[in-house]
């Protein structure tokens, strides 16, 4: 069977879920005739028609609001943000309407909001961001961030079938760079469960998204030095698989958290605090972080390279931690 890219896996997930369930509808900018800025919805308008693949004006508040409203009718809308940076234009809908609806008055919002995030493609400050923590910090939302086509498809299917609002962050650098063969039959990946991408005994790297690949590269280099790294791909950021992280840390006694998001207020801080509270006696060294620097995402290639976490930086930090 042929290998598929991540964006093809996402398109297949949407297609199969729409085929399976007529309450699944798509809404977003340029997702119909054009098939989406990254072609994640290409061909779906021709297959499912205008009622189920809805092109809208440029209006993130409108898209998200309408998705909420349709979900109150028992539909399961999947809203696309053309670039996830633009979710900021619909921020109020996300954090005040969507996230609080079920808690406040028992109005479930079974929507998925998905869109391309992340840097490394020289998109500049407004087409490269990782906004996960705006939403991880908001109770009521679920946040997934896959690093493989299999997970992208399986998590998206789970997200569509979930009764809660799920934000699906899709790293645009990975859209066409990672490929794998997928099972022909229907499968899902459970929300809230991390994956061990590489087992190891000396040190744990907890990461997600594109830095999963960088961390695996780093683990390969470190193995040559005799340092066996366990790489955890968190996959779901909210609710976080704290148990899975703690289990690994109890085995390796050392934790390095790597993410492409900026440092201050990033997920690494929350993970470090959790491990500190619940596995302090298992630790043989400090919890370290490799993250982007605390700046906007710069545009020019050398600047962006300086901004983003690199394999060399992960290797350096892991070596330092391994010495404890």
């Amino acid at each position: 069977m042929a290998e598929v890219t991540m964006v093809e896996a996402i398109r297949a997930a949407l297609d199969e879920e729409m085929q399976r369930d007529p309450t699944v509808v798509l809404i977003g900018e340029d997702i119909g005739v054009y098939g989406g800025a990254f072609k994640a919805t290409e061909g779906l308008l021709a297959k499912y028609g205008w009622e189920r693949v809805i092109d809208t004006p440029i209006s993130e508040t409108g898209i998200l609001g309408a998705a909420v409203g349709m979900s109150y009718q028992g539909l399961r809308p999947v809203a696309e943000m053309q670039f996830i940076d633009f979710i900021a234009c619909g921020f109020n809908q996300m954090v005040n309407f969507v996230a609080k609806s079920h808690y406040r008055w028992g109005g479930p919002v079974p929507i998925v909001v998905r869109g391309p995030c992340g840097g490394g493609v020289h998109g500049g400050p407004f087409h490269s961001q990782n906004p996960e923590m705006w939403f991880v910090h908001t109770p009521g939302l679920k946040v997934v961030y896959p690093s493989t086509p299999y997970d992208a498809k399986g998590l998206l299917k789970s997200a569509i079938r979930d009764n809660n609002p799920v934000l699906s962050l899709e790293h645009k650098f990975l859209y066409r760079r990672v490929k794998e063969e997928l099972p022909a039959e229907d499968f899902t990946v459970p929300l809230g469960k991390l994956a061990v991408r590489r087992p190891g005994r000396d040190l744990t790297i907890a990461t997600y998204g594109a830095t999963t690949l960088a961390s695996l590269d780093a683990a390969g280099e470190l193995a040559k030095e005799g340092i066996e790294v366990e790489v955890l791909d968190l996959r779901t950021l909210a609710p976080l698989d704290r148990q899975g992280i703690l289990e690994s840390v109890r085995k390796t006694s050392k934790l390095l958290v790597v993410h492409e998001d900026v440092r201050t207020g990033g997920l690494a801080g929350e993970i470090a605090a959790t491990v500190n509270e619940q596995a302090f006696e298992d630790l043989d060294g400090p919890v370290l972080r490799v993250t982007a620097i605390d700046t906007p995402v710069p545009f020019s290639p050398p600047l962006e390279e300086r901004f983003l976490p690199q394999v060399a930086g992960i290797v350096r930090a892991a070596r330092e931690l391994a010495r404890y």
Partner: peptide
Amino acid sequence: SPISMLGDLVPVMTGVAMGGRY
């Protein structure tokens, strides 16, 4: 249910209308 931030109900009720029509 409304939220305190004014205006957000307009697209939401638009969505309820679109869903009902579908």
